[in-house]
Amino acid sequence: MTDDDESEAVGSTLPRRQLGRYLKDAREGAGLSMERAATLMEWNKSTLSRLERGLTEKVRVRDVLGLCEVYGLDQEKIAAAKELAGQTPARSWWRSYADVIAAKFNTYVGLEAGTSELAIFQSLIVPGLLQTADYARTLDRQYFPKESDEELERRVALRIQRQHVATRRRQPVRLVVVLTEAVLRTVVGGPRVMAAQLRHIVELSTRENIEVRVLPFRAGLPTGTAVSQFIIMTFPKDSRGKAVEPTIVFAESFTGDVYLEASDDVRRCRQIFRTLLQATLDDRPSRDLIREIAREYDNDR
């Protein structure tokens, strides 16, 4: 796990960066150069450049709406951009699942796609980047009981597509994953689904960029208390050796998501992750245990 702390190295904050990325994608989707878009807005090119890089200190909603009109965005996308423009810049910010961003604009997926490393602790379920389609389908069917089969299949397809960041040939994201033994023994979809899921984890863990370690029951509570799931998101560095985005900690719960950027929060989460990692089984014993539990599921079929 990368140990450098770049959380204060970049001056922009998460809502601003996400807005900038969103507007840049919209401009490129409209086939406009930065120079042309700035001219249509009667701006200097540097003004639009700073906005797209998330460096504008004060974002005016009317300016964002003007860009949306220039780019020909529909009402759904305009609503997402407007919501991002209205977010208060802060090192940590909270958005409820009921928030319009959650429904129209997936902040986490955008961040995940730009990372160079993800350190994941999961005590409840298999992380999305390691899930099989059957495992993901079972979870989504229970969590979204009112959705049609077509809608559920789109969700599963998105989950599988996201995994490309770790399995692509060129510069795949490095994954360091700590799973509690409870993740392996909590049955999702029945023994057949679980056996296939665990073997899938073993297969992925043989890749050079993916490390999966199991925290066994006998390890107890290495931090002295129960720890909820969290992900440390580290981003690549530019040609000058500076992170293109500050490190972010993402924590998920039933009521909402929290994104932490403050250096103290990031540092503490890194320390917690190191403590958990030190208490896990090594790579090969972890794979051996996962295979053993998979065989137990085979015997239950």
Rank of each mutant, 00 (worst) to 15 (best):
T132D: 00
M41F: 05
A243K: 08
T13E: 13
R27H: 11
S12G: 14
S239I: 12
E83R: 14
K58Y: 14
S205W: 02
Q171Y: 06
D298Q: 13
P236M: 12
E261R: 06
G110C: 10
E147M: 15
R154Q: 01
L111I: 13
L129Q: 05
G114E: 08
L175M: 02
P145T: 04
T47R: 14
T13P: 07
R284S: 11
D74Y: 09
A98G: 14
R155I: 01
M34Y: 09
A219G: 01
G114N: 05
L14E: 02
D282S: 12
N209H: 02
A81K: 06
T280R: 06
L124V: 06
P222V: 05
V70K: 04
A26H: 01
K77Q: 10
F235D: 07
D25I: 11
V109C: 04
D4M: 07
S116I: 12
Q131A: 14
V173L: 14
L67I: 08
L55D: 02
Y135S: 00
T107A: 15
K242Q: 07
R17E: 11
N44I: 11
R53K: 10
T138H: 00
Y108C: 01
A279W: 04
I160G: 00
I210F: 07
V188I: 15
R154K: 03
V212K: 04
K146H: 08
K45D: 07
S148Q: 03
G220N: 02
G11D: 11
A243C: 11
S96Q: 02
E151A: 10
T275C: 05
N106Q: 12
T186K: 12
A133T: 00
E28P: 06
A196Q: 03
T223L: 08
R291C: 15
D265N: 10
A37D: 04
Y135M: 00
Q18I: 10
Y143T: 04
A26C: 11
S239Y: 10
R185M: 13
A79Q: 08
Q142I: 15
T56Y: 08
D5V: 14
R270A: 14
L129V: 11
V188C: 10
Q171G: 03
G128V: 01
P236E: 05
S96L: 05
L84G: 04
T180W: 15
D288T: 06
L139I: 15
T115R: 07
L124P: 01
M233P: 05
I160K: 00
Y135I: 00
R270E: 08
A102F: 15
A113K: 01
I120F: 03
S123G: 15
E117R: 04
T280D: 07
C68V: 13
K82V: 10
R270H: 15
Q197G: 05
E147N: 13
R162Q: 01
V100T: 10
L40A: 08
T107H: 11
K45T: 13
S228C: 15
Y143L: 08
K82C: 06
A157T: 00
E203A: 12
L276D: 02
T234R: 08
E42G: 10
I78H: 02
P236F: 12
G256S: 06
